[in-house]
Deep mutational scan, measured.
Amino acid sequence: SEEEIREAFRVFDKDGNGYISAADLRHVMTNLGEKLTDEEVDEMIREADIDGDGQVNYEDFVQMMTA
């Protein structure tokens, strides 16, 4: 549901600035027990970053979650 997606976005957007940065993503993945290299984190950001601004905004996140 849209509310679940919004809630998930809030979990990833640690600093609440409306964007998921590589640092935000790394933090959440580490908490989930996933040890990722910087390259892996950057690749995840690139794949999710639809508009190419280097971070994942809510619209990018929705597209990723509903793809």
Rank of each mutant, 00 (worst) to 15 (best):
S1P: 07
S1V: 11
S1K: 13
S1D: 07
E2D: 08
E2M: 14
E2P: 13
E3W: 11
E3T: 10
E3I: 07
E3Q: 11
E4H: 10
E4S: 11
E4T: 10
E4W: 14
I5W: 15
I5A: 03
I5Q: 02
R6L: 11
R6P: 00
R6C: 05
E7I: 05
E7W: 05
E7S: 07
A8P: 01
F9T: 00
F9V: 02
F9Q: 00
F9H: 00
F9S: 01
R10M: 08
V11D: 03
V11E: 11
V11C: 08
V11T: 08
V11L: 11
V11R: 13
F12T: 01
F12N: 01
D13A: 02
D13K: 00
D13N: 01
D13Q: 01
D13C: 02
K14E: 07
K14D: 05
K14M: 08
K14G: 04
D15R: 05
D15N: 11
D15H: 08
D15K: 09
D15W: 07
D15S: 07
D15M: 10
D15Y: 09
G16W: 03
G16E: 04
G16L: 09
N17T: 12
N17K: 09
N17V: 05
N17C: 06
N17R: 08
N17W: 04
G18N: 03
G18V: 00
Y19G: 01
Y19E: 03
Y19C: 05
I20P: 00
I20H: 00
I20W: 01
I20G: 01
I20S: 00
S21F: 06
S21T: 08
S21W: 06
S21M: 07
S21I: 04
S21A: 09
A22T: 13
A22V: 15
A22H: 07
A22S: 08
A22I: 15
A22D: 04
A22R: 08
A23C: 09
A23K: 10
A23G: 08
A23M: 09
A23I: 07
D24A: 07
D24N: 06
L25D: 01
L25P: 00
L25A: 15
L25N: 00
L25T: 02
R26A: 10
R26F: 09
R26T: 08
R26H: 13
R26S: 05
H27A: 12
H27K: 11
H27E: 13
H27G: 07
V28M: 03
V28E: 01
V28C: 03
M29W: 05
M29G: 00
M29I: 14
T30R: 14
N31G: 11
N31F: 13
N31Q: 14
L32H: 05
G33V: 09
G33M: 14
G33W: 15
G33Y: 13
G33A: 11
E34R: 15
E34L: 14
E34C: 15
E34M: 15
K35V: 09
K35P: 12
L36R: 13
L36V: 05
L36K: 06
T37G: 05
D38Q: 13
D38W: 11
D38H: 12
D38E: 13
D38K: 14
E39P: 05
E39Y: 11
E39S: 07
E39V: 09
E39D: 10
E40V: 09
E40R: 10
E40Q: 14
E40K: 11
V41M: 10
V41K: 04
V41S: 02
V41F: 12
D42L: 11
D42H: 06
E43R: 15
E43Q: 15
E43D: 10
E43C: 14
M44G: 01
M44C: 06
M44S: 02
M44F: 09
I45G: 01
I45C: 04
I45Q: 02
I45E: 01
I45H: 02
I45A: 03
R46Y: 05
R46L: 07
R46P: 01
R46K: 12
R46E: 04
R46S: 07
E47L: 15
E47S: 15
E47I: 15
E47N: 15
E47V: 14
E47Q: 15
A48D: 02
A48F: 08
A48K: 06
A48C: 14
A48I: 12
A48M: 08
D49E: 10
I50F: 10
I50T: 13
I50A: 09
D51A: 10
D51F: 11
D51S: 13
D51K: 12
G52C: 10
G52S: 09
D53M: 13
D53R: 09
D53P: 03
D53Q: 10
D53G: 07
G54D: 06
G54S: 05
G54C: 11
G54E: 05
G54I: 03
Q55F: 14
Q55K: 12
Q55T: 06
V56R: 01
V56T: 02
N57V: 06
N57S: 11
N57E: 06
Y58H: 01
Y58W: 12
Y58V: 14
Y58A: 02
E59N: 10
E59L: 08
E59F: 06
E59I: 07
E59W: 07
D60T: 15
D60P: 15
D60Q: 15
F61L: 09
F61K: 00
F61M: 06
V62L: 15
V62P: 01
V62Y: 07
V62C: 03
V62S: 02
Q63I: 09
Q63H: 10
M64V: 07
M64L: 11
M64I: 12
M64W: 07
M64N: 04
M64A: 06
M64E: 02
M65H: 03
M65F: 06
M65L: 14
T66V: 11
T66W: 10
T66L: 14
A67P: 06
A67H: 10
A67D: 08
A67N: 11
